[in-house]
Structure formats: C-alpha cells, structure tokens
C-alpha cells in the first residue's frame, strides 16, 4: 500500500509542477490562481497539523497568525509608499526583508498567546485560542490608519530579484517552493527527537511528564513554530491579493484551516495539503453552482466528522 501512496504523491507533485502550462493549454489561466491559493492555504494547514495531528492541541485561533503575517506585509508596503512608521522606521517592499519579518511577527504573537493558553487544556484551550484570535481581529478592525473594516490594499507584490512582480506564474512557483520547503522542514521536524516528544505528548502527556520532560515548553515551541508557518502563509496570501483585511483573522478562517487538516487527514502533513486542495476546489465548484454553497458545505462537514474520521488520506490508503 506504500506504493500506491508514493504513486499518488508523485502524480500530485507532477500535476502541481505542470499546472501553469496545463492551464494555458486548457485555456483556463484562472487555474494558476486557484493553485496558488491551494499552496498558500496548504502551508497554514500543514503548520496547524503540527498542533492538531502531532501534538494533540486543538488550536482554534490559527487565523490570527495568518492575519498577522499578512498585515506585516500590508503595513510595511503602506509605509514604504507613504510616511515612515512613527516617523522613524521606513516601510519595506523587498521580500527578503518583509517575509522574514512577517514570520517573526506571527511567531512572537504565537509565543505570547501560547504562553497563556497552554496553561489550560482541552475545551478551554479551544475557547481561549479562539478568543485571542478574535482580539486581534478587533485590533485590526479598529486600526483606521490601516483601513479598519475595509482592509488595506497595496500596489505591488513584495520584490524578489529577477522576478517581475506581476508575473502570476512565477508567483505560483514561489508559493509552491515555499510549500515544499515548509513540508520538508516539518517532515524532518516530526522525525526528530523534538517531534517524537510532541507525538508522545499527544498520546500520553502524563507519561511524558513522568519521564522528566517539561511538556509545557515543548507544546509552546510547537505552537510558536506553527504560528510562524501561518505567518508565512499569510504573507504570501497578502501578496497574492495585494490586499489585507480583518477577514483574514475572522474566526471562520480558523475554522476553515481546521477543516482542511481534518478533511485531508490529520497527523500526516500531506493530508492538510490534500485537504486545502479539496476545500478550495469544492468551494469554487459549489460557488459556481449556487450562491448558497454553504448550505451544502455544512452538512458535508458534519458527515465527514461522523463517518470519515481519517479524512481523504485515510480513504485513499
């Protein structure tokens, strides 16, 4: 059965690599944007899987880090075009400055939120992560300088040397490469000692504590890394749309990321990628069909939870 999975992965990778020429051949250039969207969401979903699937932490606030990454890009671009921040720091549009800063911002917020929320567990943890994400949502709604409710648009994507900022195909490959890098990093991470401890925490936190490990620190480290991943995803998403808005931090966004993880199959890293693809494709397909697509999406979700707990990946196996 390993073979079948390898074949499917190879086919998926080939499809991802050949998507732009295929889209041109089919006369549907929109597919490239759809593919970019999938790659970006997959990064956020894979980082959430680190928490849900590996560490057993049901975080319901992942959109906060996604949004913070996005707003870092948006706000720096805003200041690059206008006045410096607080009249001191200039804005920036170069990817090599902006993207690491977005990751750092999201990771710092995750460290702070995680430090507080990890004092509890189970249902309280779900509610608290949701509540803190909502707090950041309100923060950006109230920041009128950066557009408040309406969001903040900016003119061009983060600059990378040698790549035209308006080139959608190049941007697709950048996002794909980012996804590949994240997946590679995470797959190394979960096989390392650190990753083994995380999985031990999921299976039996008391035993991990009994053998002398501070589970709190490991969980906090995982939470911060996952936040960093969502920050990168948010930065890329802001670049895709050249627009950021509080919607990025809306609580339904956190719910969507959770769905991607569980729909694809938690605890596998590949699962969330499949989940992200399924979610984006299903949404765009249902939305073509009826404006009330959520009335179909909701029951699908209930059915998946009731009857297909291991997600699409479990069903492929």
């Amino acid at each position: 059965m390993v073979n079948r999975r390898t074949v499917l992965s190879a086919a998926g990778l080939l499809l991802a690599l050949l998507l732009p020429p295929l889209a041109t051949a089919l006369g549907k250039p929109d597919l490239v944007t759809l593919g970019t969207q999938i790659a970006i969401y997959a990064i956020a979903a894979a980082s959430l899987d680190l928490l849900i699937g590996y560490t057993g932490l049901s975080s319901f606030g992942h959109a906060a880090f996604f949004g913070l990454g996005g707003y870092t890009v948006g706000i720096l671009a805003f200041h690059a075009a206008g006045e410096p921040i607080f009249g001191l720091l200039p804005g920036a549009t170069e990817a090599w400055i902006v993207w690491p800063l977005a990751i750092l911002t999201a990771a710092t917020a995750a460290l702070a939120i995680g430090a507080l929320s990890l004092r509890t567990e189970g249902v309280s943890f779900i509610m608290i992560t949701l509540a803190f994400a909502e707090m950041f949502f309100f923060l950006f709604v109230s920041l009128k300088t950066y557009g408040g409710d309406d969001g903040l648009g900016f003119r061009r994507r983060s600059g990378l040397p040698g790549i035209a900022p308006r080139d959608d195909v190049a941007f697709y490959y950048i996002c794909l490469a980012a996804l590949a890098a994240v997946l590679f990093l995470f797959s190394r991470l979960v096989r390392s000692r650190f990753g083994q401890v995380l999985q031990g925490i999921r299976q039996n936190p008391r035993r991990m504590a009994a053998i002398g490990l501070s589970t709190y620190r490991y969980k906090l480290a995982a939470f911060t890394i996952a936040g960093a991943g969502a920050g990168l995803s948010g930065a890329l998403h802001a670049n895709l749309l050249r627009f950021v808005s509080p919607d990025m931090l809306h609580w339904t966004m956190s719910g969507d990321f959770m769905i991607m993880v569980v729909l694809g199959g938690a605890g596998s890293l590949v699962g969330p990628v499949i989940g992200a693809a399924a979610m984006v494709l299903l949404q765009s397909w249902l939305a073509q069909w009826t404006e009330h697509w959520m009335i179909v999406m909701g029951p699908i979700l209930v059915l998946v939870v009731l009857f297909a707990r291991r997600g699409i990946l479990g069903w492929l196996r």
Binding site: F60, G298, L301
Partner: peptide, 29 residues
C-alpha cells in the same frame, strides 16, 4: 447528530458544530 459526538474528541465536536453554523446561517439567509 450530537448524541453521536458525546464520546468523541472535542476537535470532532468543534468541526461538526461549525458545519452546523454554516448550514443554519445559510438557511436563515
């Protein structure tokens, strides 16, 4: 639905009831 979820993970409960919110919001709309 919910009777089947009492013994499940909180994660499953969150997802299924999140799906219900999508359904009811759209139904009311």
């Amino acid at each position: 639905v919910l009777k089947r979820l009492y013994q499940r993970d909180h994660m499953d409960q969150v997802l299924a009831t999140f799906g219900m919110i999508l359904f009811f919001n759209e139904a009311m709309a």
